[in-house]
């Protein structure tokens, strides 16, 4: 009985995950929608701005090479309700970032969640929101 429930729960979870790429069609054309990448690195800059905030961080790969990543979030007014602030990151912070990368292989992406040095996790809302201009956007860009 319990096994059956666990199995059904797993199936349901899997279905929910599979549904994501189909429904997240708000994506900007450059993103590899549905793909997830998790990287650990050191923050070099947190740019709290419109149309999107940018987090720059350095990741050292297995060969000791440093890759400079840049990941965006939505504009500040759309991040504040989820607990993000201008002080969320400081240069030197060790962070673990889960992001949706761009299609062309550059070290660029859209942040889904960020684990901070104190173990706290910031989540970037449910699905990508539109960019607009407040800068430009929450939709669109």
């Amino acid at each position: 009985m319990r096994k059956t429930l666990v199995a059904l729960f797993t199936i349901a979870s899997a279905l929910s995950l599979l549904a994501t790429p189909l429904l997240a069609h708000h994506a900007n054309a450059v993103f590899d929608v549905g793909k997830r990448v998790t990287v650990k690195g050191t923050v070099t800059e947190w740019f709290w701005a419109n149309p999107h905030c940018l987090l720059r961080f350095d990741v050292t790969d297995n060969n000791g090479q440093v890759v400079h990543w840049i990941a965006e979030t939505q504009a500040p007014p759309n991040m504040i309700p989820f607990g993000w602030t201008k002080q969320s990151f400081t240069a030197g912070d060790e962070v673990t970032i889960t992001l949706e990368p761009v299609k062309n292989g550059s070290p660029l992406g859209r942040i889904l969640q960020a684990r901070l040095p104190d173990g706290k996790t910031l989540v970037a809302g449910a699905a990508p929101v539109a960019a607009g201009a407040a800068g430009a956007p929450e939709t669109g860009r």
Binding site: A49, P51, L54, R56, A75, P77, N104, A134
Partner: peptide, 23 residues
């Protein structure tokens, strides 16, 4: 809340993110 369009921030976003993301 304050939500402004800032040309200098947009320019930085384009330079660092939008342009390289589109090649």
């Amino acid at each position: 809340p304050e939500q402004e369009c800032v040309p200098s921030e947009t320019a930085k976003y384009d330079r660092l993110f939008a342009n390289p993301a589109a090649g």
